[in-house]
Design a protein around this nucleic acid. Structure first.
Lengths: 248, 248
DNA sequence: CGACTCGTTGAGTGATATCAAACCCGGTGG
DNA sequence: CCACCGGGTTTGATATCACTCAACGAGTCG
């Protein structure tokens, strides 16, 4: 992907969150950044470090945020894909409260943090779009709290699969409720608070019931309406379409 | 509390997140708002509604955010206290993805949303402080995901108690790791993903081990260092002191 | 004093974890 | 081309933490 295309990708992403004018677009195109690639499972950011001097925008690939228990138990708290800003959650914080790692090969644009501060604080429309993006991330965290706290294993993993389907479709990297999911079952477990063996049994049960199909690392949701119900999934929390309350 | 004092409280809160100049303070003091009180368990905001035209700032009392499963299971996703903005999480979203309810009698200042938008987008220092506040909320959500996903009952409730202690002390409504906790055991369970009877047993076990003392609705943490370890608690995620990585 | 909510306790159950082994498959080196 | 290797997946047996159900107690309010 050319450098020009990266900036266009950022403009597109932000435009989806609110209208931008020519000045806004010009300001975005003036952002200083460098391209960079990480190979899984490289760290993009480590818990406890000072926040980065750059803000990573995902051009392609997947990344995840994780936190560790002192016992060494891992919890993945979110997954990110093309079009996501990885460091918005630390934009104004001084220390990283979690780590970010590449889940696959990860192409990012490292945007200068000070320049982004400037942009966010000086250009209202861009600031608004970035705010919105960060708030949607927070909304997803809340849904995960509910998912892990109050749903059983079957609903939990089904919910994760539904969320990925819609987010990947919105990001243009999936269609027809079918997508590549390059996570091991252990990682899925770390995302939904289960052990890998229970994830395995749960996935097989979903497949046996005809709700999903699995081939290699590909997942397809065979019956959206039914799996939506099993997952107790409602797309409201993704705030995909600012104009409508629900969808999905 | 006088009206003047409310605005001062807001200024104090935001100043803790970043320096404000006289212009910023004047702009805050010019914010149109009205005082309002809710009696528990009144709804401040309901999931699925359009976002409010006001942003509530908590003057005193406690509130909580909750989400429901279609089965009716409840998950409390955060608790808020004096000095917290309740609607920052929806500031730029169109629909509420969760409900907010009063946990006790709740005194708020309803700040006009458009005026707040204006302020946040036009005054960089204020915008930065508000951003920071919203990001800290998000950080707490992440810690709750970890807490619920990866810690056992004992650690989970101990963690909640530790978090309250530090946040209430920061808000000036507690000292010496002792505070009023006006939640029923059922609500505590809804916050940490446990049933009320297991919360009961867990609290008694913590008390039996001399880690906490309970009288009525008051909790005191008898041995901070020890309960901190039981809870696997580290204050980093609260971002209480922007200059230091840890504390607590 | 009765009714209600919240807290406490006990007994039995069940969902998920743990432990352990086998299997599968893609990659690598002989 | 085959043997091996290693990570990931699958399966079975057993253990356990937390849930469910049920009853009782304590405090509060009308």
């Amino acid at each position: 992907m050319s450098d020009q295309a990266v900036l266009d990708q950022i403009v597109r992403k932000l435009s989806a969150r609110g209208d931008l004018d020519d000045g806004d677009r010009a300001a975005i195109h003036a952002l200083p950044y460098v391209r960079r690639a990480y190979e899984a499972p490289a760290y993009v950011l480590r818990e406890g470090e000072p926040a980065k001097k750059v803000c990573n925008f995902v051009v392609s690939g997947l990344a995840y945020r994780q936190k560790l228990t002192s016992e060494g138990a891992r919890q993945i708290v979110s997954i990110h894909m093309a079009g996501d800003f990885l460091d918005l959650q630390h934009l104004f914080l001084t220390y990283a409260d979690h780590s970010v790692q590449a889940l696959t090969r990860l192409d990012v644009a490292e945007i200068d943090r000070d320049a982004l501060h400037e942009l966010v604080l000086q250009r209202p429309a861009v600031g608004r779009a970035m705010w919105t993006d960060a708030l949607v991330d927070a909304s997803i965290f809340r849904e995960w709290v509910l998912n892990i706290g109050r749903r059983d294993a079957r609903a939990r993993v089904a919910h994760l699969l539904c969320e990925f389907a819609l987010r990947m479709e919105a990001a243009g990297i999936a269609e027809h409720h079918r997508y590549e999911l390059p996570m091991t079952q252990e990682q899925i477990g770390d995302a939904v608070g289960l052990t890998p063996v229970h994830v395995n049994r749960t996935l097989r049960a979903l497949a046996a019931d005809g709700l999903i199909r699995r081939e290699r690392r590909h997942i397809s949701l065979e019956n959206w309406e039914e799996i939506r119900q099993v997952a107790d999934f409602s797309a409201l929390y993704l705030h995909l379409d600012p104009a409508s309350p629900a969808g999905g």
